[in-house]
Design a protein around this nucleic acid. Structure first.
Lengths: 218, 218, 218, 218
DNA sequence: TATGAATGAGTCTTCATTCAT
DNA sequence: AATGAATGAAGACTCATTCAT
């Protein structure tokens, strides 16, 4: 499933032997994400990542053959869950699409209150100039999938008559994603006063406006 | 005025020596932006920047004392114009705020078709982990200002009765900015199929939805 | 007996545990020779040697305490046989020394067609700068012995009247060894077109010239 | 002329400017040869080479892009002179080929008394396993050329009637080179008692034997 | 005996920055 | 104002060697 990027190196064999060798890749990826986020991919030092994972520099190379591989594995590891969640949520709400959209938006806003959620996207934005394949990978594996799930939901809304016929589905999708993205960047990257913490307020208002723009005048 | 960041070194004094020495800082900043965008701040090499600006590595240091200073100067240089334009546009449309919003959105979409426009924001996102002051600076000097201009416009719309009273101004502003941001990142960073080139289509639909959500039912 | 070099560690004691544990040191030395030859002593990796010997890296250390010890053991192991063979051949031909010299040369040429035969000398040449003791060891244990055997043979030839009296024995010996050495390096190191494969031709001619230079004018 | 290996990096421009930048490549190559010879290519440290050349580690990289490039440049630099000298000597003696051969041999023996002369061949032998192209390069550019020059000389001897007709030229050539090679390795690599210092003795005897094997019985 | 896991000590290479001219 | 030359400091990656099992 993880399409393009180089495959993980983790070896599958004996899961019981020494210390907690099995947990290592996970720990390393966590440490790497933290360092990459804090300093950027280039400025992050393998030694710091290793230390944060409780290992020596050289040991990291037992699990990942290079810094770049670490980046790739990192993104891959975070990709699956996100895309899946988006799809599940979208499908869950085919009965009342408008309500589902609001629920989805609020859930997303809530999720995004955790800085780690945008760590990966932020990282992708940071390295996109140097490693366009990573941008492509992230677009196709994550954003595109989330977008399609959303589109399906809006399409369902149109079929049900809850959303006006002349609404362009793509446009609506982007209008939906955009504010969430802005809020996340505003909060975690630009360190502006967050509205994510009280989704009942700002975010909800935002989506009310949007939904009102979508819905059929009854 | 430029809040925290280091001062602009010095204007290279008398231009008596060689050709357009006066233009040098400009050229260097352009080259730096290009390199920073293409490779990221850390990975960009001073030598490449110098070469792109038609100078020797050492000569760059006659104008900017360090790589960091280059980054700061870069951001500062791009800050003024953007904020100003936003303010002008906002004020220009106090008569028919709704129309002004649509015009503004389309103009912004058009502008953003040029990749260089998001070069700086992308850069800011990339270095925000390492240099939070830069994120703060950009937020306060650019985004905040644009946001306030927009808020003023929407406030005006409410005052004129074009926008419904119960609309939360902050929420509306974010709903306005978000889709533009998404579109820019989607196009230039994630290299998705752009909608920016034909603003009459997708972007316009997007804002139609938003504006319909804002406007008072006639 | 093996002069300076470190002692042979220890014979791996009782072979009761696994299969042909007794053969292990042999296998390891073979693998080591192959790797050392292919990459040079410094560039050869213990891991590759271990893999080639069918063991884990750590297991190699059960038999040899260090990479250097491997090198020493390697050279020692190959030394005995070669010196012995030279001596035997030399003694075998005391009756007709000239014929014996030709036979010896052809046999040597034939032997040297196998690249492994010069693997050790080549290795010695490669490390001689770094480990002069190894060069000394090889000189005294191998080359010197072979040289003395040859000298004895030529001396015998003089005594029998087959070789002219005024011939300098040392000079003749070197004239004998040199071409073989050249041919081996030319073939296996410099990868030139070999003459070793058809010893009836080039090599034989070579020794004909030499022997004609040695023999008493009848 | 330097056929295959990557081209030198030395820049040709202004030969007077700063310190003695122009002499640098030469100095570095000398230092590199010394280190490579003393420790072998792999074990030699760039830092030591730099220090020996009176530079910082990084400065070496201004002249040669990598350690490997240093090795290549080194071999190339030493190749031309050697091949040329061989050719000149050979051509100089077409009148009395037998005398020329003896002169050549003694000159070669004399030259080889300097350890630096076999430094490069020894290095080539050392790295030939890892970098076969280098072995090939050295074979074609140096050994082959020297060999051909010698063959021409012997051919001339046959034409003049000084050397017997049935002598195989290739065989004679190798018989000629071999002892020199042995003597050089014996002396400088194996550190045996040298005969090179008193060429009037051993070496001369060696060649007397050889020449007597070559010459026509008068 | 055998090994997967781990690491300390190194080495090449890069690069922002300085200096002499 | 401008640059070729030079370097100190750093970082990715490697590998012989050790250890716990």
């Amino acid at each position: 499933m993880p399409a393009k990027l180089s495959p993980k190196t983790r070896k599958p064999p004996r899961p019981k032997w020494r210390r907690r060798a099995e947990a290592r890749p996970e720990e390393i990826l966590d440490a790497a994400l933290a360092e990459f986020t804090a300093r950027g991919f280039e400025a992050a030092r393998m030694e710091d990542i290793a230390k944060a994972a409780g290992l020596s520099k050289a040991a990291v190379y037992l699990y990942f053959p290079s810094k770049m591989a670490l980046l790739e594995a990192l993104i891959q590891a975070k990709v699956g869950p996100i895309a899946q969640r988006a799809q599940m949520l979208a499908q869950a709400g085919r009965d009342d699409p408008l309500a589902a959209l609001r629920t989805l938006a609020l859930a997303a806003a809530h999720t995004m209150a955790d800085a780690r959620v945008i760590a990966v996207p932020r990282l992708v934005i940071g390295v996109s100039g140097r490693f366009p394949e990573i941008a492509d990978y992230y677009r196709t594996q994550v954003v595109e999938k989330a977008r399609l799930a959303l589109e399906a939901l809006i399409e369902a809304g149109k079929a049900k008559g809850a959303i006006r016929d002349e609404i362009d589905v793509k446009a609506a999708t982007r209008a939906f994603i955009g504010p969430l993205l802005f809020e996340a960047l505003w909060t975690h990257v630009l360190r502006g006063e967050t509205a994510l913490a009280q989704p009942q307020n700002l975010i909800e208002q935002q989506f009310n406006i949007l939904l009102r723009g979508l819905e059929r005048r009854s």
